[in-house]
Write a protein that binds this DNA or RNA. Structure first.
Length: 645
DNA sequence: GTTAGGG
DNA sequence: CCCTAAC
């Protein structure tokens, strides 16, 4: 293993590096397959570069070249995403769960602020051997938890590398986690270095530079904290940074296994929690023999604004743009949306992130295979079918036939609540969307549920959806995931930056919202045949109850037409089902209820209406007369019924 | 196409 | 939410 020390190039501000990072092959190569004792293979590559002069460079200039660090390059992966690998290792079974802060242009302030949890000293005591980070000229990943200052970090890193790495004394076998390094500027989907080594929209950081408080989060841990931070600093959030968020997959591997015969001993939800990291590790260790690879992923989405429940997902993908002209998409600059004089709405989506991956490979795996695994995982995600959704005010706009104008996207007013979502084609349940009012959405969620809700379908979305009335036309549009499906056989190669950008700068035409990558307009396959789960909000329940009170329980089509006509994603079958569950919910004890709590008042009405209409059904049948159409319960009678129950 | 009910 | 029988 050869570590190449990168020269300190100093800083050149937030400008694009004079010499964009070239493919690794061009910058030197070395084999990574050096084995350490115990026949272990340090199966990873360290692309470590420590930002040296962050402190000096915090203000005006942003992107500095990595000052120093150790770079290990692998000729095998010239076009693969860079990977920052953090080794989480600890003695006596004690693992330090480090959180990688992937952020471009960290300034001192933010950097310092990121430290939470372990200090360097603590890390020392914990026998943390190394923190591998990658950093290129503009992108840096820091293992924030172990760092207090850039200097310390650097020192630490050097020391660790010397001690641990070079002398092979760091039990590298214990754990290896991969994180996607800062992804391409314009699209996280882009995986080919040469293609997206483009200038990054550094202006964003230039502006917000020191004000940044990293809002990284541990996916599994800092739900709350992040939420809070997000609300505060969303303005500074960079989609790019978001993109780097590591996503420890919460999902069952059955959805995400990429490699065959995957073995994952850490699928338990407890895996989501740091304290249980050890568990996984143990599991890993005890199973170190098997050479399986586990890859899990989670959906993700970008948004224009707003805060995500997990604090990491949100990003200002789109914003008003001062920019004009036909060059609607400028991936490398801040995202924008603009309505021009010619009635064209231009979208510029900063980026889409690849759902984070959690990968495990046997220690005997080669770096190359590791990279391939990562690549495969990425490709599996991409090729497996990505679906782009457009969300407005937290609701996904599924009506592809609606014009932007009709949808309200032609005016800047709605842009704040506009967001794009990129998610695996219906492989997952509900979108982890917490869009809309950043100041409230996430806070009302139930972070605690996160660990036990792999799919992340907590009540978060409900909160958002409460903001509309199902009865209100114009507010709801359907979410037509189905129409935008891309099958697994999608050629990976097709998912190029250009394509991902295809969703940018959409014309304000009819098909505008049918944002589908060109290459993915294939029929929906067995993959995407299940709609995303969309829990009913209290508001919807209210509307449903009200409608049923009036129409009864046997006229779901009417109920649909009356109260959910504009909620295309709610079919009358859905309503019927919901009613069914509502009745059930109303009958069980509150303790047994799950999901967003439905006001008891509503449940009472449910029981009331249910009882009433049950009786009516009987009466009606007895009479053999009145058609259901003649039955109508009045508000008063509904009230009566409900009070009787 | 709807409705009803099990999965 | 899905699936389907039944209408």
């Amino acid at each position: 293993m050869v570590f190449k020390k990168r020269a300190n190039h100093g800083f050149n501000g937030f400008q694009v590096p004079v010499i964009p990072r070239a493919p690794r092959s061009a910058r030197g190569r070395s084999s990574l397959n050096k084995k350490v004792k115990d026949n272990q293979v340090c199966a990873f590559e360290i692309l470590a570069s420590i930002a040296g002069k962050l402190l000096e460079e915090s203000e005006s200039s942003a992107s500095s070249n990595a000052s120093e660090g150790f770079i290990v390059q692998d000729r095998q992966n010239e076009v693969k995403p860079s990977i920052a690998e953090g080794i989480h290792h600890g003695s006596s079974g004690e693992s330090i769960f480090t959180t990688e802060v992937a952020s471009q242009n960290l300034d001192q302030k933010s950097f310092v602020h990121t430290e939470t949890g372990f200090s360097l000293e603590k890390a020392e005591k914990a026998n943390v051997k190394i923190e591998a980070v990658e950093s290129d000229n503009k992108d840096r990943i820091y293992s924030n938890r172990l760092v207090e200052t850039p200097e310390k970090f650097r020192e630490s890193c050097n020391r660790k590398i010397k001690k641990g790495f070079r002398s092979n004394k760091c039990g590298l076998k214990d754990r290896l986690e991969l994180y996607m390094s800062p992804a391409p500027v314009d699209s996280k989907i882009n995986v080919k270095y040469p293609l997206h080594r483009k200038p990054f929209p550094t202006d964003t950081f230039t502006k917000h530079g020191n004000g940044i408080k990293l809002d990284f989060r541990d996916d599994d841990e800092n739900f709350l904290r992040c939420t809070k931070v997000c609300t505060k600093s969303k303005a500074f959030r960079s989609p790019r940074r978001m993109a780097h968020r590591r996503i420890k997959n919460l999902l069952s591997s059955k959805y995400w296994n990429v490699a065959p015969k995957l073995k994952d001993c850490e699928l338990s939800r407890s895996d989501l929690e740091i304290p249980l990291y050890r568990k996984r590790k143990v599991c890993n260790g005890s199973d170190s023999s098997h050479h399986n690879t586990t890859v899990k992923k989670r959906k993700f989405f970008d948004r224009v604004s707003g805060v995500t429940s997990d604090g990491g997902f949100s990003s200002e993908s789109v914003s008003n743009s001062p920019e004009k002209g036909t060059d609607g998409h400028k991936p490398s600059s801040s995202s924008k949306l603009q309505v021009t004089e010619d009635s064209r709405v231009k979208f510029s989506i900063k980026s889409f992130r690849i759902p984070e991956l959690y990968i495990e490979v046997p220690e005997s795996a080669t770096v190359g295979s590791l990279k391939r695994t990562v690549m495969e995982a990425v490709m599996a995600i991409i090729g497996g079918g990505m679906h782009v959704g457009v969300l407005l005010q937290g609701e996904e706009i599924g009506d592809d036939n609606r014009t932007l104008e009709q949808t309200g996207l032609s005016c800047n007013e709605n842009l704040d609540t506009l967001s794009f979502m990129l998610e695996p084609s219906s492989l997952l349940a509900s979108p982890v969307s917490c869009v809309g009012d950043p100041s409230s959405q996430c806070e009302t969620s139930e972070p605690i549920r996160l660990p036990e809700t792999p799919a992340l379908d907590s009540g978060i979305t409900d909160t958002v959806r409460d903001s509309y009335l199902p009865i209100n036309p114009g507010n709801l549009v359907e979410n037509n995931h189905d129409s935008t499906y891309s099958p697994t056989d999608t050629i990976v190669d097709k998912v190029t930056p250009d394509q991902s950008r295809a969703i940018v700068a959409l014309p304000a035409s009819t098909e505008a919202l049918a944002v589908v990558p060109v290459s993915q307009k294939i029929k929906r396959s067995e993959f995407a045949n299940r709609r995303t789960r969309r829990p009913f909000s209290v508001t919807e329940v209210e509307a449903l109850v009200h409608a049923v009170e009036e129409l009864g329980t046997g006229r779901w089509r009417d109920v649909k037409l009356r109260a959910f006509e504009n909620a295309d994603h709610r079919t009358y079958v859905d309503l019927k089902d919901k009613w069914k569950t509502l009745v059930h919910t109303a009958k069980i004890s509150p303790q047994q209820r799950r999901g967003e709590p439905v006001p008891q008042e509503l449940l009472d009405r449910v029981l009331g209406a249910h009882a009433y209409w049950s009786q009516h059904q009987i009466k009606q049948h007895g009479k053999h007369q009145c058609g259901t159409g003649t039955l109508k319960i009045t508000e008063a009678s509904a009230e009566r019924v409900s009070t009787q129950v």
